[in-house]
Design a protein around this nucleic acid. Sequence first.
DNA 1: TTGTCAACTGACTGTTCAGTTGGTAAGGAG
DNA 2: CTCCTTACCAACTGAACAGTCAGTTGACAA
Lengths: 213, 213
Amino acid sequence: MRPRSKKAENIKPVRDAEATQAVILTAAEEEFAQHGFTAARTEAIAAKTGVAKSMIYYYFKDKEGLYRAVLQRSHADLVQTLQKLELEHLAPDIALENFLRALLDCVSRNPKLPTIMFHEAVQNQGKYYKHSDSVSIDATLVALLEKGVNSGVFRQLDPFQSAINIMGACLFYFVGAGNIQQFPQGKRLLSKAMLEQHTQEAIALILAGVQQS
Amino acid sequence: MRPRSKKAENIKPVRDAEATQAVILTAAEEEFAQHGFTAARTEAIAAKTGVAKSMIYYYFKDKEGLYRAVLQRSHADLVQTLQKLELEHLAPDIALENFLRALLDCVSRNPKLPTIMFHEAVQNQGKYYKHSDSVSIDATLVALLEKGVNSGVFRQLDPFQSAINIMGACLFYFVGAGNIQQFPQGKRLLSKAMLEQHTQEAIALILAGVQQS
DNA sequence: TTGTCAACTGACTGTTCAGTTGGTAAGGAG
DNA sequence: CTCCTTACCAACTGAACAGTCAGTTGACAA
């Protein structure tokens, strides 16, 4: 049996390694999303958690280790979801809709991810992605668009350029969503209703935008 | 007469206040675009210019002063161009196309602007914009879409959400454009040909996306 | 020639940050 | 109870950074 029997009981767990790591990761995710790697402060992350700053170095070695861990955790869900989509045998427009819905669902669940990805792309030239991740997401979308154009379902568009623009239309919403306050009275961008509406609106815009007229 | 008579001659100007300021601003624009305000290093900016770091403080008081100056210079062109557009008396679809073309032309001329705006929105919650700028750009677009929906030219869409998504489709391209290297053989995202293609592709996607089917 | 002022510099300073260290104490095993 | 491992922390260190300052250089006017 695992030595974690205490956790099953109702006693509030102090001295819980896993919980502490999770708390640090969550706080770090917020900090890295808002400030990027360099401008993120380890002391600010520690302050949010309530544990000492040295715990970051205890569990994650250094700032970069923590950053990698945040990136990995954030991406795991997204990559997994999109890889098990099985789009090959579907009509291009249906495949595109499924792809976008999966992407937007994923991102709605973790709205900080696009901002982190943005920082990663701009600041670090994506050196922590390189393989496996957002690159392959883009590649999937490009292939999808190419197929749609060739089969005449989509209009004549450049698959590469359009893939970028489509990603932009989907993800831009989340960037700065946490920040903007002055809005049409009291609508929080990240409320469940607004996220669902955004999913609908984005899909509608893109599907209409690529379809053969 | 101004005491700048030397400038008209062909002698290479050293000790030229305006030129030095311009050089600093350009270098700062690059640094701030890549790293954002906090992570940008004044020493890195100075290193790019060839002049001493203290010139930043001599001309711009401090790091924030330099940042403000960069923001102002970057925005001046954009705001001016979009304000003199006179879209009211045009049909909504034509007005939208004009708006997008002006926006994309502007941004193509200064591709670092979207990245700077992004950093500003995420890191600093847009506190250096607040009035007059990107807010009013968004507002213009929202109004445009609203008009198009009411007159039946555009399909039933949410003007607010769609405005965000449209901006994303247009601007996402520029974010990370300087950074991504692995591409369909040797295409630089910011070459003139690619920028023109992006303008066309983005406009086509959006116009098709909003039109009544 | 000399005086003066703006443009400019490199060496300095105080602070803030990532990362370290020496140690405390919880809690299970024997 | 004692021992040992592991979670945890406050106080520290050295480096990097924003910002300063005392002084130099170049241009022009008197």
